[in-house]
């Protein structure tokens, strides 16, 4: 409409401009039509479940209230109950140990492997592909394999340790080791992801820099410290942040191996939420939703950091 109004004012170019304006408007509608499935999808399958989740956390939902649709409004009570629960600090520290421990070790091993595979050698492509296997396996498969390997009486890990004179360790059934055990399994799962991304990052570093450093007589460690590591910093940050976001969400591996036990020893926020809602005979959705929403807030803060980093990089 506005394009038509301006027409009399400019005599020479108006038609072209009006034409272009119409075209642009038409294009905008076309774009919207192509986006429509996604917009509907996001609204129905993301926004609405999220809204339901907030709704759950401020009411007292029991399975019966679900069907009848008349839950009692409780405001922020569930949040207060959760934060003051004895389990809260436990879950917080477990989440921190599991998440930070996982991403730190995954990153270091992933980076070492990426540097190792950086210079091609015979079979390097094949071996690199094999490293993807743990990441592609269904989690239930990896988790149950690790469970059996870490089995107290018949596991291969204890059998191997016995050869060195170390007695039986109850990896999954002792509160001292269960968090360590699930973290180790999770590190194993995350190495391929770190390797692939860091390897791709290394490919973008110009080989001429290494040649120049070689002429200056820099040894391998100096080349790593002064070229690889600094230039890889943006990719490293993104890898770690994505790792953080993914690891915060992890339920499957812990639930399958220990169910968060024994005695909450490996219960993270995600496990806590899952157990309240689905892990017992009596689903308790409202506190579960409250824990879940706390988790979203943590992930969201990490996500904002990710977006900022990416923007910063785009703008140079």
């Amino acid at each position: 409409m506005t394009a038509l109004h301006t027409e009399p004012a400019h005599a020479a170019r108006p038609r072209a401009r009006a034409g272009r304006g119409n075209q642009r408007r038409a294009q905008r509608w076309t774009a919207l039509a192509f986006l429509a499935p996604l917009l509907v999808y996001l609204a129905v399958f993301y926004a609405y479940p999220l809204y339901r989740n907030i709704d759950l956390s401020v009411h007292d939902y029991t399975p019966r209230a679900f069907i009848q649709g008349n839950p009692e409004f409780t405001g922020l009570r569930h949040y207060v109950v959760i934060v003051t629960d004895d389990a809260f600090l436990r879950a917080l520290s477990n989440t921190a140990v599991f998440t930070l421990g996982s991403i730190a070790v995954q990153y270091v091993i992933g980076l070492a492997l990426a540097v190792f595979f950086h210079r091609n050698f015979r079979l390097s492509a094949v071996l690199r592909a094999m490293f993807l296997v743990p990441w592609l396996l269904p989690l239930i498969v990896s988790a149950s394999t690790w469970s059996w390997m870490l089995n107290s009486e018949n596991g291969i890990v204890n059998a191997a340790l016995q050869a060195f004179g170390i007695g039986q360790i109850n990896w999954l059934t002792s509160p001292d080791t269960s968090l360590l055990a699930v973290t180790v399994a999770n590190i194993w799962l995350g190495i391929p992801f770190n390797l692939v991304i860091l390897y791709a990052g290394l490919q973008n570093i110009s080989p001429s820099l290494y040649e120049a450093a070689g002429l200056d007589g820099a040894n391998a460690w100096e080349r790593f410290r002064h070229i690889t590591f600094p230039l890889l910093r943006p990719v490293s940050m993104i890898t770690l942040l994505l790792g953080l976001i993914y690891t915060l969400k992890v339920v499957d591996i812990i639930w399958i191996m220990t169910r968060g036990g024994p005695a909450d020893a490996s219960t993270t926020f995600a496990i806590w939420s899952y157990r309240e809602a689905f892990g017992t005979g009596q689903p308790d959705f409202s506190p579960a939703a409250a824990v879940g929403n706390l988790l979203i807030v943590i992930a969201f803060v990490a996500g904002l950091a990710h977006v900022r980093l990416q923007r910063k990089e785009e703008n140079g």
């Binding site: 969400k249 995600a270 992930a299």
Partner: peptide, 25 residues
Amino acid sequence: IDFLLLVAQMIPAVVMAMGFYAIYI
């Protein structure tokens, strides 16, 4: 939309599962 898609990837599956459960029931 870019931003929404990034946020969408951050939502824990357990949270989505509860939302879907509430709707599906």
